[in-house]
Design a protein around this nucleic acid. Structure first.
Lengths: 122, 122
DNA sequence: TCCTTGTCTTGATGATTTTCGAATCAGCTA
DNA sequence: TAGCTGATTCGAAAATCATCAAGACAAGGA
């Protein structure tokens, strides 16, 4: 009961041209900071990387909780929730297992925001 | 006494191909997460945006502390320090005033990391 | 030399975050 | 139905963070 809700909920209407081109207003900054904050933890960054680089386009939580990450299951679950609520990933249960996949539109948005084309020394 | 030190110190050797192409290892994730974490606060994001979008390529702290941001001077100074230590901006004093400017190489690196070219639904 | 202005650091406080173990929920299979 | 496995939520402890007031530092001018 969460997939679409999350994808649209956290991310819809977030926008904006590159920060180098135009100053960000407070309202949009809050939404965008929420996404960047989700990336601001090493474990979450690695989780996201595993999810986005999964060859099948998605990955089972069971593949994330087995070794590799040196934290407990609940902690991984917590971090996945943060990423999900930030709108960077989406997940759904299929039978016994839960699968997560990236939300490319929002990742793309963050990348675009950091575009430095307008800056010197390019 | 800090400019070069900061630019090189926080950022040197951080690297990596897009997270969608290859899973991030723990060592690099820590460095990169530090930068993303610096972006994970609305005030810092707006400060960075003001700095990177400044037409002169740099901006005086005095232009950041006068209204617009609804926090005290020391708080702005603190956030600038976080951005500086993350390697996203650099600053130096010239006479009475202190000027900050972006570090494009590191901003570019974060953008590259979020590149989603390898993802579907492009 | 002293005063003024601009910026940063210190120290303290309240809020948030990370993490775990325990408990709970969801779906499968016998 | 009962029992099993995978994943999440709950509750609590420790660490980290954002913020401000007060003080310190730097540069320029009387």
């Amino acid at each position: 009961m969460s997939k679409q809700l999350v994808v649209l909920g956290a991310a819809e209407g977030v926008c904006c041209s590159p920060i180098a081109e135009q100053a960000l207003d407070a309202e949009h900054a809050a939404d965008l900071a929420r996404m960047f904050k989700a990336l601001g933890d090493p474990i979450r960054l690695r989780l996201l990387s595993r999810i986005t680089s999964a060859s099948a386009g998605e990955i089972c939580v069971c593949d994330l909780t087995s070794g590799e990450f040196d934290v407990s299951g609940p902690t991984i679950s917590h971090h996945l929730k943060v990423l999900r609520e930030a709108g960077l990933i989406a997940g759904d249960r299929r039978g016994t297992w839960v699968y997560y996949r990236p939300v490319p539109a929002n990742l793309r948005q963050l990348a675009a925001l950091l575009d430095t084309a307008a800056l010197p020394d390019a």
